[in-house]
């Protein structure tokens, strides 16, 4: 039972870590909070569900098609919806509040469209559900593959942020937007890029999870909330912290579900979140762009 809990915790946590990383990039660089974040995950899950059903193409190959679209749409959300409020924001706090309200609306628009198209039923499809034995436990191949993909993409994205000029520019904007302007970085360009990257990562997370979990049109907000908890717990803009905290969150969920009760997972996660906020309000890892 223990190995089972660890395995399902790690596989789920890997995807949480990836999704949280996307949100922390968006939030850290653009300083706008995107409550519609999880809708990108669910929309991508539905897109893959439809195309997988129609053509039988692997969700992993479909991801190559869906991710650029998610990037573009997310970029558009920033340029069209958020840039006007960035321009008129009087303070960083005002910008956060304005963006919360605006993207709260975006959440309902995207959710409404999905409800119209797919209804509110639970949806799932079967892909790579082959049991694999690891030690004394069995785990489905689709879970392992998702974990592998999440780790791979997370590692590549982290490397790009740390070692490329563009990655360094994104981190610079997240640390000090005024300093960034003073070295010639177009902050709106950086924020748009961060939004696009975040949207693509959210979409990938949704696709990976859809290969082994049921989902509904109304589930986006759960993704957003879990990602938000991880981001705030780790410290805003802290990419490595988000990866670690995401894994831990997945493990906590799996252990609570295995040893206590599945219904308690959300309650325990919020309790841990509350504890982290009380003990380290600036985030467990602090607010750094590392």
């Amino acid at each position: 039972m223990f190995t089972n809990a660890v395995l399902s915790g790690l596989t789920l946590g890997g995807v949480y870590a990836l999704v949280a990383m996307g949100l922390t990039i968006q939030y850290g660089v653009s300083r706008t909070m995107n409550l519609g974040y999880g809708e990108f995950s669910i929309a991508a899950a539905f897109a893959v569900f439809v195309m997988f059903g129609a053509f039988g193409i692997s969700p992993y190959l479909l991801a190559i098609l869906v991710l650029p679209v998610a990037f573009g749409l997310s970029w558009l959300v920033y340029r069209v919806m958020l840039m006007p409020i960035v321009r008129r924001a009087k303070s960083p706090l005002a910008l956060e509040i304005d963006s919360l309200l605006l993207t709260f609306g975006l959440l309902f628009v995207i959710m409404g469209i999905m409800l119209l198209m797919f209804g509110s039923d639970y949806t799932s499809y079967s892909y790579l559900s082959v049991p694999i034995r690891i030690f004394d436990a069995t785990v489905a191949l689709n879970r392992l593959a998702s974990f592998g993909a999440a780790v791979l993409v997370g590692a590549v994205a982290y490397w790009l942020l740390m070692h490329t000029r563009t990655g360094m520019a994104l981190r610079a904007v997240s640390v000090d937007p005024i300093g960034a302007r003073l070295v010639g970085i177009d902050v709106n360009w950086a924020a748009g890029l961060a939004f696009g990257l975040g949207g693509a990562i959210a979409a990938l997370g949704g696709i990976l999870i859809s290969t082994y979990m049921t989902f509904t049109a109304e589930m986006g907000v759960v993704f957003t909330m879990k990602a938000l908890i991880v981001v705030i717990m780790a410290g805003v803009g802290h990419v490595l912290g988000a990866l670690i905290a995401g894994l831990v969150l997945g493990l906590i969920e799996a252990f609570v579900a295995t040893y206590l009760d599945t219904g308690l997972t959300v309650a325990v996660i919020y309790a841990v979140f509350l504890l982290a906020l009380i003990l380290r309000p600036q985030g467990i890892f602090g607010r750094v762009a590392r």
């Binding site: 360094m168 981190r171 640390v175 000090d176 005024i178 300093g179 003073l182 970085i185 750094v288 762009a289």
Partner: peptide
């Protein structure tokens, strides 16, 4: 100053 406080001196200069 508006330095990138959590980045290294080398990274600040390269930026």
């Amino acid at each position: 100053r508006h330095l990138f406080g959590t980045l290294t001196v080398a990274e600040n200069l390269m930026l």
